[in-house]
Design a binder for these strands. Sequence first.
DNA 1: TCCAATTTCGTACGCTGTACGAAGATGTCA
DNA 2: TGACATCTTCGTACAGCGTACGAAATTGGA
Lengths: 266, 266
Amino acid sequence: MSDVPDQPDQSDPSLRLLWRHRAGVREEPKTKRGPKQKVSVDEIVDAAIDLADAEGLAAVTMRAIAQRFGLGAMTLYSYVPNRDALLMLMADQVTGRAELPELPEDPRKRLELVANLTHDELRAHPWLLEVQDVRPWLGPNMSDRYEWQLQAVEGLGLSDLEMDQTVAVLIGFAGNIARSELMKRRAEQVTGMTESEWWEANYDTLSEVMAGAHYPLANRVGTAAGEAYQAASDPARELDYGLARIIDGVLAHVGRRSTGAADELS
Amino acid sequence: MSDVPDQPDQSDPSLRLLWRHRAGVREEPKTKRGPKQKVSVDEIVDAAIDLADAEGLAAVTMRAIAQRFGLGAMTLYSYVPNRDALLMLMADQVTGRAELPELPEDPRKRLELVANLTHDELRAHPWLLEVQDVRPWLGPNMSDRYEWQLQAVEGLGLSDLEMDQTVAVLIGFAGNIARSELMKRRAEQVTGMTESEWWEANYDTLSEVMAGAHYPLANRVGTAAGEAYQAASDPARELDYGLARIIDGVLAHVGRRSTGAADELS
DNA sequence: TCCAATTTCGTACGCTGTACGAAGATGTCA
DNA sequence: TGACATCTTCGTACAGCGTACGAAATTGGA
């Protein structure tokens, strides 16, 4: 009824939850009545991370986590507003586990480090690939990570915008490799065969079904891949190859600029 | 009881379903008894694609699709073995809708075309991003696509393995851009605010909560981004930048090789 | 001591994919 | 023409999900 600044707090409540440990979060002046909470948000998030690591993100159900603490499922909702928020907290918390090594002098090594760190992390916690596409949440550990990533591309001669975009390309590429590794592992798990076993088991069907279709390049390339690795793909080598090309491109770009050529981006 | 080659058919039943239209699939000698099916697999898959386009992959439920045809939910299972198979069919079928343009002469333009085609497709059908990570299914349209993609990198001086990896880098990058656009759209939908509105609404909370944390580079880069576009990111420009760098890197690689330098990959 | 505040959690709802089995439709054969 | 085998259709049911709701239990402050 009044025009008092009664703004309904448009701000995202998840932010305070994400930054709960860092200085600056003012404790809300809550009365301390009521039972003490039996566990902490961190314990819950850690348990959820462990569960996701061990059995995949699908196994991270509210009921399963609660059970780990001997709690009722609904009890979790006094710690965390909902499952999506929990996933967000998991993502930030697991990001905080990796220590960020000092950056080497050599520009190529710096960029490789950024990509490899992301890749290793996603291999250890593949469920991050499924979580990430909620939002690039601004948690404290994600922010630390981003700052570190920017340090890796600082001083190369890139514009501010290009620094951000370069980081995005690198970690995006690392994510793609990790994703293809995950797919491969899952396919083996689901079918119960290795990749080469699958090809063997389906060779007859494939050639029957593809009779009349002509894939000269795909056949040649597929054969080459099958001989080089003994599978259709080898993510580790894909990582090396693609990363080298991307870094080549970035370094060529800044090199070209520093020798006085035109640049097309602000 | 006998040692007759009674092999339990290890081959993937989904393959015959994927290739159902192409020559070479032998019709199984089934008796023609029983009622005729009222719709076709193609109609079901098309309806599912339309639904996914309009309301997202989560809206693609067996019940919802069946209802579109006035069928009972369980009826779908006489057309398709399960939901995952349906998603696979959707992915291949929607891939077949895009026509594959003739490839230009200029190598750079060819690689750009491969990436842009993928990007446009994923913008039109973002749910492909959620489906793809089941497996790179060997459907007829996916196979056509792959052959076309290989044509784009044929003759550049890449080895067979490198051709495959180059295509993977390009379409993976296009997918990442599409994914970040999707995230952005979803975030706006969920929060009901544009990106800049969100930053404005959370500015106070952010600075309160991040007090004590120092992100000099992130602040500088973030400010630059906010001024350049009026948002934290601009996927269209990220596409141009990253694509240019990747292609730079690939062309530098083959250029270096053709001028007689060493190559590190088979 | 009593109450207000808070946590805990049992129950329930709507939604999902899909297993099961009955019912109906159709072609084939005696 | 009937009887039967085979196929499609689909109602019902189940387990599992996130979570809304409200009651019960617990605690600190007045």
